[in-house]
């Protein structure tokens, strides 16, 4: 059981990395990856929200959606958005420092495809409560890893003589492609 959870985590983090192989969470990956510090915070915020989302999705899947499957998408998006909003307000009240660190990223994350993607994938694969948590954690870690790698590469590239043509998104996409190629090395990484 725990081995299964571990491989779900590894799979979501490395083998089927959310950003590099499933193209989820590309907006922060492109937009908030210029500096390592912000990338780390964005990653942390993502892990946090993904975990909550997984819990909510498990709950919805278990108790609400069996009665109204066509409401799946709408209920996911509404519940996630409101939950993130509540979390944001709570953090703001409880820990202003943490809010300064993560707060501004939270609303951005709400409409991040990674969050909704997680909920949908989790449902499609029929993950239970614990599996969902492992999946969310793996996805979050994978997102953070991709973000930090991209940020460190971009920080380096910022000082380099990038040809004018490749500056900006062109380079980011090609770096992402290269990272994605490198991550293919994890393909097939699975339970021995």
């Amino acid at each position: 059981m725990s081995a299964d959870l571990f491989w779900i985590l590894v799979s979501a983090m490395l083998v089927n990395n959310f950003t590099l192989h499933l193209f989820l969470g590309l907006c922060p990956f492109m937009g908030v990856s210029a500096k390592i510090a912000t990338a780390l915070r964005m990653g942390a915020a993502n892990i946090f929200v993904l975990t909550i989302t997984s819990l909510v999705a498990s709950f919805l899947n278990a108790y609400v959606l069996p009665h109204a499957p066509y409401l799946r998408l709408i209920s996911f998006i509404v519940v996630i958005a409101s939950l993130v909003q509540i979390v944001e307000m709570t953090i703001k009240k409880v820990s202003p420092t943490l809010f300064r660190e993560l707060g501004i990223y939270l609303p951005l994350i709400t409409t991040n495809c990674a969050i909704l993607g997680l909920a949908i994938f989790q449902t499609n694969r029929g993950y239970g409560f614990l599996e969902g948590l492992a999946f969310a954690l793996g996805a979050g870690l994978g997102l953070t890893l991709a973000l930090v790698l991209m940020a460190s590469i971009r920080e380096r590239a910022e000082l380099a003589d990038i040809p004018a043509l490749a500056k900006g998104m062109g380079l980011v996409l090609i770096v992402a492609g290269s990272l994605s190629l490198a991550f293919m090395g994890f393909a097939g990484l699975a339970t021995p």
């Binding site: 930090v148 190629l181 090395g185 994890f186 393909a187 990484l189 699975a190």
Partner: peptide, 29 residues
């Protein structure tokens, strides 16, 4: 060793180096 042992491919040197290449800016810092 991880890729050779548990991965889907018999050889992993290329991927191992590429992955660590990606980490180099971070390691340098």
């Amino acid at each position: 060793v991880v890729i050779r042992t548990w991965g889907g491919l018999p050889e992993g040197v290329m991927y191992a180096i590429l992955l660590m290449n990606a980490l180099v800016p971070f390691i340098n810092r």
